[in-house]
Design a protein around this nucleic acid. Structure first.
Length: 253
DNA sequence: AATCCATGCAACCGCGGCGCA
DNA sequence: TTGCGCCGCGGTTGCATGGAT
């Protein structure tokens, strides 16, 4: 579950995050927001790449992140959304507050895919052979592992459907397609809402981390603040602003 | 008790899209 | 129009853990 800590060729740290790194990242983002993921680790005093910081924040540190078991309702929702949207984990994650796309993706691969495959194979056992070879998509490592495992078990699960293409929206019935379009419409609406937050009335709205992400900011020399954190090169992000941070406004996450 | 193996999860990698100069 | 930088997404990998043998 943990990756061996190491360093890449640029001297940036890789592998598992330590509690100290978590604290630094959390403190920095809570205080200044993520104004630029690429530059952020430098100012937060982290020897990580921006991508790694973003991933850590999105999957573990952000407020309201939900850990632990999935409820039956969540499972059903994921199955339904996956049937409509396919592997668009970020779109699926929008409908599960507190769950990250990565977490949902993992959950799908570890538990739900079997259920989905079982359900679909119930209805398509007769045409299993059609799937072999027609799906040119490379098998994932998990699927390979499962396939190897299946082979090791004396081919007793010969009829396992590794990945049913029935889930693809393109092949959905017209009814499913309309619900897919409806889903798309909802996603667009949510994106427009975010757009509104990050544009005109941004500075009067409660703190919204995502709105910082693509914001281009004029550079001013960084400085070290009272807490030992390096202030971002932005004239806009003031301490009083961050102090009004309200975790309850993270409905979108 | 030791080893093997399947599983779950955290993290990395590469690609595509978008905005800007 | 094009090239560049950045971000987000989805696929994949690596490792720990727990159950089976």
């Amino acid at each position: 579950m943990v990756r061996t800590p190491g360093y890449d060729k640029n001297g940036r740290k890789k592998g598992t995050w330590t509690p100290e790194e978590d604290k630094k990242l959390e403190a920095y983002i809570t205080k200044y927001g993520c104004w630029n993921w690429r530059q952020l680790p430098k100012y937060a005093g982290l020897a990580r790449c921006g991508k790694s910081c973003r991933l850590r924040w999105m999957n573990h540190l952000r407020p309201n992140v939900k850990r632990g078991n999935y409820t039956k309702e969540e499972d059903e929702l994921i199955l339904n959304l996956h049937a409509q949207l396919g592997n668009r984990w970020s779109a699926i994650a929008i409908h599960l507050p507190g769950r990250s796309d990565n977490e949902i993706k993992n959950h799908w691969h570890t538990s739900l895919k079997k259920r989905a495959n079982y359900n679909s194979s119930e209805g398509s056992k007769k045409c299993n052979n059609k799937n072999s070879g027609s799906n040119t998509k490379r098998k994932s490592s998990v699927e390979n592992r499962n396939a190897i495992s299946a082979n090791n078990n004396s081919n007793m699960h010969e009829n396992i459907v590794l990945e049913s293409s029935d889930w693809s929206p393109k092949e959905s019935s017209s009814e499913e397609l309309s619900s897919y379009q409806h889903e798309q419409h909802k996603v667009v609406q949510q994106e427009l809402a975010l757009e509104e937050i990050s544009s005109g009335n941004f500075w009067t709205e409660p703190f919204e981390v995502d709105s910082f992400i693509n914001r281009k900011i004029d550079f001013v020399a960084p400085s070290i603040d009272y807490y030992g954190l390096m202030c971002p090169p932005s004239p806009y992000i003031g301490h009083e602003f961050i102090s009004s941070f309200d975790y309850d406004h993270y409905n979108y996450w």
